[in-house]
Design a protein around this nucleic acid. Structure first.
Length: 573
RNA sequence: GCGCCCGUAGCUCAGCGGAUAGAGCAGGGGACUUCUAAUCCCAAGGCCGCAGGUUCGAAUCCUGCCGGGCGCACCA
């Protein structure tokens, strides 16, 4: 389906091309002076050496807009103001009601997308630091999947490295069953800390740990089994967190660092063959072009450490090669904090130089800022400790439970389910409604408020709509051929609804979910104006059905939009 | 030193070259015999960090400052 804005754009583009004699952007956008405006004449006038208003007049003369607009006027210095015909609105809306996908088709040429996100560490608690990656990455997965792309979730688990020496030795000390029980239940911090304490205090333990690392890397069978035990127990725990948080990661998506172990030696060999590998201070490194260190010298990416071990850079390179060559990925997304930006830029550059990343395949760092406390510093507990992710989730749900306590139309189980949707929704939405490039300030009261740009507000807006249907005992029809849109509030809502596709298209590329959030909030706000001004159930028969259709579409767009953000929408609250 | 990100109302945030810079919160004033008032409406609140430049037009693009955050060789 063609979206309204795109239709206007295309028609005007043809007209502009005629007037300019070359491809010219019409500059169509929403306007407060009309439904839409086109700014293209102002920019074009300069190139043609003519007056903007004259250019605009020529464009209007040749533009074929009769079926779309009732009014096309030139205003100010040369803006073209467009008022959309209600017939056009009506038929587009009717088409939208009939479409299961709300006018948004599956993509014609799907990408194979690898989304690298969440990435907790084995035997370590998930904390606030994992919140944004998990929430944003999950939204990326849901959106691209819904659009019909082939999405591969890659949970780049920290399941390898020197800490496993001490972790395995600690496991042996306390016994396998005890360790597994502790880890599966989520008592990860105390397990890790206990290991750490012994490691720091006890030299013989430290030596055992060191030996154990060697055994692990050497493939010693017992050690591997114990390691696997640690990983499995942690994965089991992480799954409980994901389930509780409504995150769509599954057991199958754990693709930890260790997965790439066997690829690391061949990787180094290939870099060597390609002539990219250098020796520096005893380490094997690659110097990607365009990167310098603080002395202005070429900045290396260390592929193999002086001691022969591999660092994360090697794993990241192996992963990128695996993803493009084995998984045949065309779009690689790394949902990782902004501080790691340079690292990934270096990895991408090397991958391009090595030929592992070439068009149409592209890699993109989906970076994000930090979560801050109300004091403007990194969000921590009052004691200065990092906050566990489960604690955050639990608090969100229990705070939401206090809010929904008064709902008398639901039983206890129903209220608990609503509390979950509201609490988790609030937490996720607070993250996704902010520009991910920026830091944001964490504030329980604000995110759980029913006023302002919050998940509860959007959820509530939809509940009010469903309440109309229940109250009237009606089911909105979805096979309309046309409908009437006459009141200003109806028009405003109609135009807002028709903008959904454009927003989705934009976010699918930029992965800036706050644009979707801003849109949904605008839609909900536009709806409440409509709700105040236009009675639905009390309207006359013809009008009533049309208003019901507007309500229904709004509810569906809200539910779909929230769903793409990983947020549920309760039917009552 | 080099690089990246950020600076918009008292607070939290939108605004990816267009008309008079927008929301929410807080503070002020209103609206519940009404489809859920957990809502809505009205008024008030701004040298868009500073200074130049490009442009018919700059919060938006460029340069330089100021202020804050983060990276920059064997941790991920």
């Amino acid at each position: 389906m063609a979206t309204l804005e795109k239709l206007l754009h295309d028609r005007l583009a043809s007209a502009f091309d005629l007037v300019a004699g070359m491809p010219t952007s019409p500059g169509v956008r929403r306007s407060k002076h009309a439904d839409f405006q086109a700014d293209g004449a102002l920019a074009l006038a300069r190139q043609l050496g003519r007056k903007p208003r004259d250019v605009a007049a020529d464009v209007v003369r040749v533009a074929q807009l009769d079926d779309l607009c009732t009014s096309v006027e030139i205003s100010g210095p040369g803006f073209i103001n467009l008022t959309v015909a209600t017939d056009a609105l009506a038929s587009l809306l009717a088409e939208m009601t009939r479409d299961e996908r709300l006018g948004i088709p599956s993509v014609a040429a799907p990408d194979t997308v690898v989304v690298d996100y969440s990435a907790p560490n084995v035997a370590k608690e998930m904390h606030v630091g994992h919140l944004r990656s998990t929430v944003i990455g999950d939204a990326v997965v849901r959106l691209l999947d819904w659009l019909g792309h082939r999405v591969i979730k890659a949970n780049h688990l920290g399941d390898w490295g020197t800490p496993f020496g001490m972790l395995i030795e600690h496991l042996l000390d306390i016994g396998e069953s005890e360790a597994v029980a502790e880890l599966s239940l989520g008592d990860l911090n105390s397990f890790y800390k206990a290991a750490r304490v012994k490691f720091d205090a006890d030299d013989s333990f430290k030596e055992r740990a060191r030996q154990r690392v060697v055994a692990l890397q050497g493939g010693d069978e017992l050690t591997r089994r114990l390691w696997r035990l640690l990983v499995a127990a942690s994965e089991k725990y992480f799954m409980t967190v994901y389930d509780r948080f409504d995150v769509c990661l599954t057991e199958k998506d754990f693709l930890g660092e260790s997965f790439y172990n066997d690829m690391l030696h061949p990787l180094v060999d290939e870099l060597d063959r390609l002539g990219l590998l250098r020796e520096s201070d005893g380490a094997k490194v690659v110097f990607p072009v365009g990167f310098v260190n603080r002395e202005g010298e070429p900045l290396p990416l260390i592929v193999r450490k002086r001691d022969g071990g591999f660092g994360y850079a090697a794993t990241d390179l192996a992963a990128i090669r695996y993803r493009t060559q084995e998984l045949e990925a065309t779009r690689l997304l790394y949902v990782v904090g902004s501080p790691q930006r340079q690292h990934f830029e270096m990895v991408y550059e090397i991958a391009r130089e090595a030929g592992w990343l070439r068009p149409p395949a592209r890699a993109h760092h989906v970076g994000f800022g930090s979560i801050l406390g109300s004091d403007g510093k990194m969000f921590r507990t009052r004691g200065g400790d990092t906050i566990k992710l489960v604690d955050l989730i639990d608090e969100a749900v229990s705070r939401a439970a206090a809010l929904v306590e008064e709902i008398d139309q639901l039983d206890d189980a129903g209220r608990a389910e609503v509390a979950r949707m509201v609490g988790i929704g609030a937490l996720k939405y607070a993250d996704l409604s902010n520009d991910r490039n920026k830091d944001y300030v964490f504030d329980w009261a604000r995110m759980l408020s029913f006023e302002g740009n919050t998940a509860p507000y959007l959820q509530y807006a939809r509940v009010r709509i469903l309440s109309i249907f229940r109250q009237g005992g009606v089911t909105p029809v979805r096979d309309l051929v046309t409908l009437t849109v006459s009141e200003p509030a109806e028009r405003a809502l109609a135009i807002e609804l028709l903008a959904f596709e454009g927003v989705i298209a934009e976010v699918a590329e930029s992965l800036e979910f706050h644009r979707l959030a801003t849109y949904l909030y605008g839609l909900a706000a536009t709806f409440t104006t409509f709700y105040e001004k236009c009675p639905v159930l009390r309207a006359e028969d013809g009008v009533r059905d049309d208003r019901l259709a507007l309500c229904d579409l709004t509810a569906r767009v809200l539910a779909r939009g929230l769903g793409l953000l990983g947020i549920g929408a309760p039917d009552r609250m």
